[in-house]
């Protein structure tokens, strides 16, 4: 759900209305927000960062980072995180766009279909995990029926014991749970493409395929760019589905950054080391913010 606001913010500041109110009343208005965020978020972020530069004997010490940077496990985690986020990003955008195009057709019962196709978004993550765990059960799981249709597959695969299959499953579940949001945003972008452009293209004799390439895609490109950044951020945050379905396994094959940090902190009790990994995550998040703002800037300068 959480992706909505950043997209909404892409609308840019509503400069339609200006007046010079006395500044101090604004600070009273944001005081509750600042208080809540300071106690429950900022404090944790700051102490987390402080813990990352604390050595085993206390005091300022960068050993967590130097240890981490030479740890092949850390780089394997980063590699897996990259594979997971990039694949989720691409697949969720393609699936999201496909379903958005479908929901954009004019047909009877369109509103109902739109509601049905976006239901996965409303289902909490834990029930989603429970359902898919059963669907990939090596003895009774319905996914085995699909696998058996492939040539050469005569036995039910061990979904969570095979590194490739386990990664494929967590990607599929993440996409399934998340794509409706991307579809809804892309649907509204599709509906905002001016009808005249399609009519002009038709007059020029453009086929449906060419209309898609030369009218639809350029029209929704800004939304796609924003959603690509968002998908990257949100898939990097994915914890619950991976944790409940594979636990990061088999042998760390699905251990991306988020579950790895959790593992360090709560299984191995390396709080400082976990914090150092978290800071790396924070740096990536900051880089994504910069990318997000750059995309947003380009959008506001492009749209009249």
């Amino acid at each position: 759900m959480s992706s909505a606001a950043t997209v909404a913010s892409a609308a840019g500041p509503g400069r339609r209305f200006r007046w010079n109110a006395s500044g101090s009343s604004a600070y009273w208005l944001i005081l509750p927000l600042l208080a809540l965020e300071a106690v429950f978020l900022v404090y944790a972020i700051v102490t987390g960062m402080a813990a990352s530069v604390e050595g085993p004997a206390g005091g300022f010490d960068l050993s967590n980072f130097s240890q981490m940077l030479v740890d092949p496990d850390f780089w394997r985690i980063m590699g897996r995180t990259l594979v997971f986020t990039v694949l989720v990003d691409i697949i969720i955008l393609v699936a999201g766009l496909g379903v958005a195009l479908l929901m954009n057709w004019q047909f009877r019962g369109r509103a109902a279909v739109r509601g049905l196709l976006t239901i996965p978004w409303a289902i909490p993550e834990v029930p989603v995990a429970i359902t898919f765990i059963f669907m990939i059960d090596p003895t009774f799981g319905v996914f085995n029926l699909l696998a058996r249709m492939l040539p050469g597959v005569t036995q039910n695969p061990q979904w969570t014991l095979n590194p490739t299959l386990a990664m494929a499953i967590v990607i599929i579940v993440t996409v399934w749970k998340g794509f409706p949001f991307y579809s809804l945003v892309l649907l509204s972008a599709l509906q905002a493409v001016p009808e005249e452009l399609y009519e002009a293209a038709k007059l020029d004799g453009a086929s449906a395929g060419r209309q898609f390439l030369h009218v639809t895609l350029p029209g929704i490109r800004p939304s796609i760019a924003l959603l690509a950044v968002l998908a990257f951020i949100y898939s990097m945050q994915q914890f619950t589905l991976i944790w409940l379905i594979t636990g990061g396994g088999p042998v760390d094959a699905t251990m991306t950054l988020a579950p790895a940090i959790y593992m360090q902190a709560f299984r191995f009790y390396n709080f400082n080391y976990a914090s150092a990994m978290a800071v790396v995550g924070l740096i990536f998040a900051a880089m994504a913010t910069v990318a997000f703002i750059a995309v947003q800037r380009r959008l506001t300068s492009e749209t009249p």
């Binding site: 987390g48 945050q237 914890f239 998040a285 900051a286």
Partner: peptide
């Protein structure tokens, strides 16, 4: 920034 920060990062703190 708070929105894009991975939640798993700050569970321990």
């Amino acid at each position: 920034f708070t929105q894009i920060m991975p939640g798993a990062m700050i569970v321990a703190p």
